[in-house]
C-alpha cells in the first residue's frame, strides 16, 4: 500500500481529487492519500508530495480503536482492539440501527452522565443498540431499561447487553404512542417529537434528563417543554449537535 503525503488548498484539490478515486484524508496539517497501485505521474507532479509504503492493514490499525470518553468509558466494536479505558463497552450495530458510539451525540450523553454520581434508575429512551443503557449499567446505575421502536435495534441491543454482562431490560416500544418508561435519570438521544412526548410524561421521580439528538435551533423549544427543569450543563459540536443535562 502506498501513501502520498502532501500539502495544498482547495485549488489543488480541484486538480487532484478527480484523479484520486479513493479521496484524501486530513492528517494534522497535511493531506494524505492511499492507493494499492503506484500514484500516477500526474498526481505526483501536481502535489509534489512524498510517497512511502505502509502495511496494507494500516486502516484497521488506525481506525479501529473505538472512542474513549472522559478517560473513563471506552466504546468499541467487537472487531476493535481494547482501549484500556477503566470501563470498556463493546457494542455491535447492524444495518441502520444506531449507536456504535461514534456519533457525537452518543459521546456527549456519556460525558454528561459521567458527571452524575451513580445511584438510582435509568431509562434510555430511543436506545438504538443499547449503548447508553449499557454504559449506565456499567457505571453502577440500576435498574436500567431501554426502549426503541426499531425491532432490529432491540435485537442487537439484547446481544450487546449479554456481551457486556450487564443487567439491562430492553424492549421494542414506540415512544410516539406507547407509555413512556420513567426513571431517576432519563437518557433521551432522540428527535424532537420524542422529547415532546417524554417531557409531557415526566413526573417527580425524574431528577435529571440528558437531552440530545437535537440541533442548536431546536434547543429552546425542546427545553421549554421540560417544565420545572433547568439546564445544568450544555455541550455542543461544531456541526450543531447539542447535548444538555436538565436537572430539577
Amino acid at each position: 500500500m502506498y501513501r502520498l503525503t502532501f500539502r495544498g488548498d482547495e485549488d489543488l484539490l480541484d486538480a487532484v481529487l478527480p484523479l484520486l478515486p479513493g479521496g484524501v484524508r486530513e492528517d494534522e496539517d497535511a493531506l494524505v492519500a492511499y492507493s494499492g497501485a503506484p500514484f500516477s505521474d500526474a498526481v505526483l507532479a501536481l502535489t509534489g508530495g512524498a510517497v512511502d509504503e505502509v502495511p496494507a492493514d494500516w486502516k484497521q490499525r488506525k481506525m479501529s480503536a473505538g472512542v474513549v470518553i472522559g478517560g473513563v468509558v471506552g466504546i468499541r466494536s467487537p472487531f476493535d482492539r481494547e482501549s484500556g479505558a477503566p470501563i470498556e463497552v463493546v457494542v455491535e450495530r447492524r444495518g441502520s440501527a444506531f449507536g456504535s458510539g461514534s456519533h457525537p451525540t452518543t459521546q456527549m450523553c456519556v460525558a454528561l452522565l459521567l458527571e452524575l454520581e451513580p445511584g438510582g434508575s435509568v431509562a434510555d429512551l430511543g436506545c438504538g443498540v443499547g449503548t447508553l443503557a449499557i454504559v449506565a449499567a456499567k457505571l453502577g446505575w440500576a435498574p436500567v431499561v431501554g426502549v426503541d421502536r426499531v425491532p432490529v435495534a432491540i435485537e442487537v441491543a439484547r446481544e450487546n447487553v449479554e456481551r457486556n454482562g450487564v443487567d439491562v431490560d430492553v424492549a421494542v416500544s414506540d415512544l410516539a404512542v406507547d407509555d413512556i418508561p420513567l426513571a431517576n435519570v432519563l437518557l433521551v438521544n432522540a428527535p424532537p417529537p420524542v422529547h415532546e412526548r417524554v417531557a409531557a410524561a415526566v413526573d417527580d421521580r425524574v431528577r435529571h434528563v440528558i437531552v440530545s439528538g437535537i440541533v442548536a435551533e431546536e434547543m429552546e423549544d425542546v427545553v421549554r417543554r421540560y417544565t420545572g427543569f433547568k439546564i445544568a450543563k450544555a455541550l455542543g459540536t461544531e456541526d450543531e449537535w447539542i447535548a444538555l443535562r436538565l436537572s430539577c
Partner: peptide, 29 residues
Amino acid sequence: SRLVEFGARAAILLAPGLFRLDLTPQEET
C-alpha cells in the same frame, strides 16, 4: 458508484465547468 472509506474526502461526481461533489462518510454521519 464507489466505495469510500470512513474519513476520506472523495470526489463522487464531476460536471466539468459546473461542479464537483465530494463526500466524506463517517459511521453515522
